[in-house]
Every structure is written in structure tokens, then in C-alpha cells.
Design a protein around this nucleic acid. Structure first.
Lengths: 223, 223
DNA sequence: TCAAAAGTGTTTCGAGTACACCCATGG
DNA sequence: CCATGGGTGTACTCGAAACACTTTTGA
């Protein structure tokens, strides 16, 4: 196959901003790096693209290696190419963000990383590279997207209570919502369907369990 | 400077979706290619990054070479990396969209291109590469952005009438707006200030000329 | 005086918001 | 029987949308 003539000395990488809500707290997954010059620093998991790999493919590989999760909502966030962003050379990063439910995820610290941890988005540590900028972009994007799409399904298990749905919104938006108005709007939106089942084992009146009628991205009017 | 170890055979390019509104019509700039295998085909102007150049820098260079315009609103649209998008090899494209006023732009067909033309967005010809996908993304983005930002300033000259402002909205949204409601909202928004001057030479009652109080991106509630 | 676009208010309707009490369960 | 969260309805306010005529100018 003929090649383009120009010589470029630019590497392509993918970075994954992995987000979830656990116990009413909006969290991001960070890894602690081992290699110099960033040993000990925290960053979003990422890495160079392998040949024959798409950016999204690379992100899924990275996602699985850090969390074991194969299914998650994934969306391209943007491409970050500040020339000084990587001290080891010119690396352009295509960043994605991933959303997943906060329950049932077993983090595993592989030998690639010194540590892997969920961090509250409101209390992130200092980040390597330009990951502070990437974090800001991801958080803005998901906040906005909650208002005009149904992405929230990607942050909840198959069935859930209205209270847990509301708490996901509140955690991400960082604001309290009125319970009655929230239920009214979300039930009228047609996004949910009743399962008929009830929550079990709580020390109070059991809540009805709902599911999403569609588990793929759609535009809606909410909030 | 030490280099990352991996060998990648991936080239990075930038493409510019250049948009404007002329005579009430929403248009995109396309170039007609000379080189095989796409000779004669239309596409957005673009090209490989030079070393030491950022994606945005490359886009500005491409923009200037196709239009002569140095100042335009520029925003990253997304990165397109389908492995089959370029038959000459693996090229990942970072696409930007540019917005500029529809008046006073002299297109120049350089020797790089067979032709350079404005095309109505509703009647684009067949496009090379994956530029149809890129076009769709750009158009969706600018439509949405009109509703929650003040970007429209980038599509108008320094002073303009309320009617011409309205016609820009109508051209991009593809829908008619109510004149009285439009004027009410846009005047209440605080985006505009009166210049005190009047339009000249029209065969009807002259309209007042306005200017934007801010010529940089801000979020607002409109539409 | 005619053609053409500029400019101007009011009413109606629906959505958003604020707000407080009873219910079902486990301990 | 008590503590805990689940579940429910109404009233008010404000912004969105619909709608038609008079004014100013050049030809």
C-alpha cells in the first residue's frame, strides 16, 4: 500500500476518563504511575495506540485492563495535543469518557500501575500530563449531557429505585432536587418502566424497582 | 529527548469544516481535489500535520490557504479514525469547524485544488473520505450551539440589523422564527448594543444597526 | 402613492417550582 | 411503637408562543 510522503514524529494515545456514582458520590478512576518521570503521580489510564487499533478500541482495551469491565458507555471527549503535554515527546491524546454503574466492579491493580482507585471528582489529587484539563472537559460534558439525553442509564444497574436514580443526578449535578418534581418528570418522560418488583431487605418501606425502557442514547428534554 | 518506544505507522491530519451564511443560505466550503485516487471529488480542505504544529495551528494554516481568512471562530469537532477512511494509509483526522461572516471573503483557487466553492449545506455533493460523517457532526454541533451560546457573532459582520441576525438563525436552524418574539428575546438577552446608526441605501424603511457587546464565546439561554 | 421591509404589545397556555403529610416496613 | 425512607397533589409564577397593524423610506 502506498504511503503518505510526509514524515511525522507524532505518537497517538488514548486516555479514558472513567466515571461512576458510588454511594451518592460522583467518582473518577485514577491510576498511580510507576515509570519515570511520573512515578507516584495519578492520572487517567491510557496508552499509545497499537497499529491496526482504533482510538475507541484502544480505550476499550485500557478500560478492561483497569476495571475488568467490557461493557460501558463510551464517548469521545476530544483530542489534546498541547506540544508540552508529555515530557517524553510529542504525544497527541484522544480522550474518551466511560460511564458505568457504581456497583459490582472489582478494581484490580495490575503490575502496570502502582495503584488503581476511585476518587471523588470534587477531591481529585494533582494529575499528571494535562489530565486536569481533560477532567474538566469530561465533567462539564457529562453534566450537560444529563440534561438533554438519557445517558444516566449507563450509571445504574438493570433495576433501581427512583431514589437511587435521583441520587445519581444529585451527585453529578452537585445540587439537591425536589423529590416530587423529580418523580413527576422522570415518570412522565417515558424513559422508565415499572418492573412490578420491590426492593428487599431495607429497614423501611420498600421502594418500587424500575428499569430503563431503552438502554441506548436518545435525546430527551429533562431537568 | 527520549522517545516513546512503540513504532506507530499512523499519520495525523486536520480537516476544516468552514461554515457561513450567505444571502440567507447556510453554506460550507468545499475544495475539489486534484490528486488520485480522488481527483475531481469534493472534500473539506485539510492536510497532514507538520511537525511542531498543533492541530489547531494546522487548521488555521489550511483555513488561510483556502479562504485568506485569518480570524474565524474555530472549535474542535472530533477525531475521526476509521481505519478505512483514507485508501492511502492509516490517517487519523482531527476535524475542526470554522465560522465566519458571509460577506467580504474572496475565495482563491490555489494550485493545490482544482476548485474552491461554497455549497449550500442542504445540497452538498458526494464527499471524499468520511467527510459526509464529519459534515453531519459539524452541522448538528453548530445547530445545537446556536441555542445555548452566543457563537452567532462569528457569522456576522461588526454591525448588522436584527433582520439579518434573525435570517442567520433561520438559515442554520432551517425553520422560520417569529419576528416579534425573536426581537424581544434577543434584545432582552443583553448580547447586543445599539450603534445608533442606520442602514443606508435600502428601498424601504432603514433598519437600526447593532453590534455584539461581547465577541467571544459565552453561554446564554436563547431559543 | 405604492412596494417593501422595519418596528411594536397583548393574551394565552403550559411548564417549572415550591411545598408537607401519611405510608409501609424492620428492628 | 419508633425510626427510616417511600410515596403522593396543588397552587403560583413566569417564560414560550401565537398573532396584525402602523411606520418609514426609495422609487
Amino acid at each position: 500500500m502506498p504511503k503518505h510522503p510526509s514524515r511525522q514524529d507524532i505518537k497517538l494515545a488514548a486516555d479514558a476518563v472513567i466515571l461512576t456514582v458510588q454511594d451518592g458520590v460522583f467518582k473518577a478512576l485514577l491510576i498511580q504511575m510507576k515509570k519515570k518521570p511520573f512515578a507516584g503521580a495519578w492520572a487517567f489510564p491510557g496508552g499509545l495506540l497499537e497499529d491496526e487499533e482504533t482510538c475507541e478500541g484502544a480505550t476499550r482495551r485500557i478500560l478492561a485492563s483497569a476495571t475488568g469491565v467490557k461493557e460501558a458507555y463510551l464517548e469521545q471527549l476530544g483530542t489534546f495535543d498541547d506540544p508540552g503535554r508529555d515530557p517524553l515527546g510529542r504525544v497527541v491524546s484522544v480522550a474518551y469518557f466511560a460511564l458505568m454503574p457504581g456497583v459490582g466492579i472489582a478494581l484490580r491493580t495490575t503490575d502496570k500501575y502502582a495503584d488503581v482507585r476511585w476518587w471523588p471528582v470534587s477531591k481529585l489529587p494533582a494529575l499528571a500530563y494535562d489530565h486536569r484539563v481533560i477532567a474538566k472537559a469530561a465533567i462539564e460534558r457529562i453534566r450537560a449531557k444529563l440534561g438533554y439525553t438519557n445517558v444516566v442509564w449507563s450509571l445504574l444497574p438493570k433495576t433501581f429505585t427512583l431514589a437511587s436514580l435521583q441520587s445519581v443526578y444529585e451527585a453529578i449535578l452537585g445540587a439537591a432536587l425536589d423529590k416530587r418534581n423529580f418523580r413527576k418528570k422522570v415518570l412522565a418522560s417515558g424513559l422508565l418502566e415499572s418492573t412490578g418488583k420491590m426492593e428487599k431487605g431495607a429497614a423501611h418501606r420498600p421502594a418500587e424497582l424500575f428499569r430503563f425502557s431503552e438502554r441506548r442514547l436518545a435525546h430527551i428534554e429533562l431537568l
